[in-house]
């Protein structure tokens, strides 16, 4: 692949998804786009770049970006945020007017484990939520991941990562060596394609946002923009959870760390904001 092709492809990926491919990621294009190139009958990455420079290449570009996303996830990933959520939800339930659902967003939900972990946490609280409805929205750029998430079918390997066996038995149906999330839980989540680079206001307001392990792929200006957008739609008494390697420091002052917690952020009060 010529440096020119690489720069063009990387530029396209950045514009469409925010994902930054540094010059040392040439190998990644080779390995991750192989299947797509064969399927489309495209000879190689230079040929792909040519095709994508031509008009009407929209679908191909979208397909390329999807193929370059990293979709690793697991149930109750990192544990702590879900323990925090367990303490937070009853407070939110008590603070909301009657009839108003608690809305939780799993932004960059990948194959759905995060959203289902939220659903399991909410169901587990039972009476502590005083009958309050919990509405979960799972979004991702990748149509393939959304499809997987919607089906809620996981391999034996996937259900053994992070998921206590009691919860497996309680909330999943076995189908051979695969396990499907029970209908009651699946009914709590709606799945929708959404690009974090777009304006999220159409999704409504949220009490809680999980935006984990996706900002790591973006550059600083993109991170700042996404974080500011999240801050604008999270409730004043709600929180935003970020991944273990992600922070708001130096990126936005519209979110501030919740004292004494890791990876938990809340909207800054207007007075505390500096700029």
């Amino acid at each position: 692949m010529t440096p020119d092709s690489f720069n063009f492809l990387a530029g396209l990926v950045k514009v469409r998804s925010g994902i930054v491919l540094t010059a040392d990621k040439g190998y990644m294009l080779e390995t991750r786009l192989g299947t797509m190139l064969r399927r489309e009958g495209i000879a190689g990455l230079d040929a792909l770049a040519l095709r994508l420079r031509a008009p009407r290449s929209e679908a191909l570009a979208a397909e390329m970006v999807e193929a370059l996303t990293t979709n690793e996830s697991s149930f109750f990933r990192d544990g702590k945020p879900f323990e925090h959520l367990k303490k937070l939800l009853p407070k939110l339930a008590a603070a909301r007017p009657p009839g108003q659902a608690i809305r939780i967003w799993s932004a960059a939900c990948s194959s759905g484990q995060e959203a289902y972990s939220i659903a399991i946490t909410a169901v587990g609280l039972g009476a502590a939520l005083a009958g309050r409805r919990v509405e979960i929205v799972g979004t991702d750029l990748s149509q393939e991941m959304l499809q997987r998430a919607r089906e809620g079918v996981y391999t034996q390997f996937e259900v053994q990562r992070g998921l206590p066996v009691q919860m497996l038995v309680k909330h999943f149906r076995q189908e051979g060596t695969r396990w499907q999330v029970a209908p009651e839980l699946r009914a709590m989540v709606c799945w929708q394609a959404f690009n974090l680079l777009d304006d999220p206001r159409g999704l409504g307001r949220f009490d809680v946002v999980f935006c984990r392990n996706v900002l790591i792929y973006f550059d600083a200006p993109t991170k700042s923009r996404v974080l500011a957008a999240l801050a604008s739609l999270v409730a004043a008494d709600g929180v935003v959870y970020l991944g273990g390697a992600e922070t708001v420091l130096g990126l936005t002052d519209r979110l501030v760390p919740t004292p004494g917690e890791r990876g938990v952020y809340e909207a800054a009060r207007p007075a505390a904001r500096t700029g």
Binding site: V165, Q166, V169, T177
Partner: peptide, 11 residues
């Protein structure tokens, strides 16, 4: 043994 019935039995 990966049958859900077995898991429940063990638990």
């Amino acid at each position: 043994e990966a049958e859900i019935a077995r898991i429940i039995e063990a638990l």
